[in-house]
Design a protein around this nucleic acid. Structure first.
Lengths: 330, 330
DNA sequence: GTGAAAGCGCTAACAG
DNA sequence: CTGTTAGCGCTTTCAC
């Protein structure tokens, strides 16, 4: 039965007192007499009054809602970030509104403008691949100028002046590669990558190369380059088949690690032994202990981003923007 | 520079016309003169006016926001559902607010009440495991009685009278098992499960057993039961190692399929050959073609749920609740 | 202790 | 064509 919602006004009318009295009674203000409070509370419960938080948000000018924009929810990294954000916000009485950009500027822009038009108190953003490649940040810059609190994570850029959360991609890649060399005794490692790539993937590659450089007397490396994902996979497959000296693969991202796993699994029937290291948040990685996974602590990233944002919102301070680096572990 | 936001009132004042004229001009109402429209539009753009959609939502009494409640975002099934919901809503001018229950009634209830208190026009819910096990649906029932449009998916129950979206778990499990038997020539299939389980897992198991029953002359099956996930994995490992006649594994959910993959991968080095079938949405499944995955079309489920909900919202009709079944494919 | 009244930013019915 | 007015449901002075 879709009865009319109970409102402050309806309670006031029924109890023949004023709206403001009801409001104060419900928020347990000391101004109101005990007797009145009891009456109001009872009536409210009996008619299961639920305050219209939308109205109250409107009145107060803040919504207790945060917007999150991520490129892709099927990538477990972003899913974990979302989890971190959501749980932190939830613990602090905030709601989360999510938008998935699919790596397109257009959708990013569209949702950004809807959200920022009064719906959220602040935003947590991982910019779309398209925006990063074209270096088009105006749609975000505009919001910052406008005074909207924003925290950027994962893919960041210097043009945008705001709080940021990042992983030390360079160091992480270096460490994992070193592990591959020293602990797994790899002598010949392959890496796959595309030419025109994102900033953080570049950093990862540099970390990898730095490690190879450091141990250049003991280890060789091969770089497979192709701009189509399919091409990368095929070339890797061919190489693994033709060159039995390869004993290590380094994956720059989710996809390349998974590819490597599948390909080497097929080969292992023939008794070769290849170690894999790389950036991967897939569930799979938990189930396969032989893998060296770089744990980006995605949930932690989400949590810290949310924390930073709420701090910013509360301390109306517009200076001293922070960039926090979240540690990784292997 | 956090300048004051431009509002209808500020435009009106600057241009020395009334607020309602501005409002109409901006919504391109035919009532307003071309000249005035131009002035308003120009001024608005110059001061980059963005309408406060929050206020307008409040005024209109609808928020164009939908709430989604899922147990776990790391499960790719739910992530895909979210994707489907989000993209459908986005195409129809709706926003999405997400809450993750972690399978606990408490959090589910809490978020339900926040959301439904004016923040959303409707809800899409997959009830928490705890709620399903304890058959506690009052927190949801209350909302339905209250008139909030709700669509349930995946885990549903008869007590709740509303629109629903489900997969034909029984049929899907039957088909996949049959495939294992007929196409992969499996003769000895293992299944792992817990005793006290969820409705849809039960249906899956029944589908599996029906198939075994049908082909009972050609195939044997073993059922491993343990109420701890770890126990299941260990027992499965032991069985696979000790009994080489086993040539098939059926996984009732994400986790059991992944377990099976890892365990059999280890064994395959020793040249045995085991086929795996089951319910799995993990990325992994895409990379391993030998797997028989039951594709639940999660994105489709999300899309249909959103569609059903928007229909319900628009057609204030409270009768004729639908239950839609989304087909699966192998 | 309680209440009257203003107003958040916008929309819409109704006058002119 | 343009303006006036009355709220949406709630919070918050300020007066009684």
């Amino acid at each position: 039965m879709p009865t009319k919602r109970t409102t402050l006004a309806s309670i006031a009318q029924a109890l023949e007192i004023s709206v403001s009295t009801v409001s104060k009674a419900l928020s347990n203000s000391p101004e109101i007499g005990v007797e009145t409070k009891k009456r109001v509370l009872e009536y409210a419960k009996a008619n299961n009054y639920t305050p219209n938080s939308f109205a109250s948000s409107f009145r107060k000018g803040t919504t207790s809602t945060i917007g999150l924009i991520i490129p892709n929810i099927l990538n477990p990294f972003y899913a974990k970030v979302l989890l971190g954000v959501e749980s932190y916000l939830d613990d602090h009485g905030y709601k989360l509104i999510t938008s998935i950009s699919n790596d397109f500027i257009e959708k990013e822009t569209k949702n950004l403008s809807v959200m920022s038009s009064g719906f959220v108190d602040g935003l947590i953003i991982c910019v779309s691949k398209e925006a990063e490649e074209k270096k088009e940040y105006d749609h975000i810059k505009q919001l910052i100028d406008n005074g909207t609190p924003i925290v950027l994570f994962d893919r960041i850029c210097d043009e945008l002046v705001c709080d940021k959360i990042i992983t030390d991609d360079y160091q992480a890649a270096f460490d994992a590669t070193e592990y591959l060399i020293k602990e797994r005794n790899c002598k010949h490692i392959v890496i796959t990558c595309k030419t025109n790539t994102l900033q953080h993937l570049d950093l990862r590659r540099q970390g990898f190369e730095k490690a190879i450089e450091k141990y250049k007397d003991e280890v060789k490396c091969k770089v497979i380059i192709d701009d189509r994902s399919k091409g990368l996979k095929q070339k890797l497959a061919a190489l693994l088949k033709s060159d039995p000296t390869i004993d290590g693969v380094f994956g720059l991202n989710e996809k390349s690690v998974l590819n490597a796993i599948v390909l080497t699994n097929k080969l292992q029937k023939k008794n070769c032994n290849i170690s894999i290291a790389g950036f991967c948040n897939d569930l799979q990685s938990k189930y396969d202990s032989s893998l060296i996974v770089i744990n980006q602590n995605a949930k932690e990233i989400g949590k810290e981003a949310a924390k930073l944002l709420l701090q910013r919102i509360k301390s109306k301070d517009t200076t001293a923007f922070q960039t926090k680096t979240i540690a990784v572990d292997l």
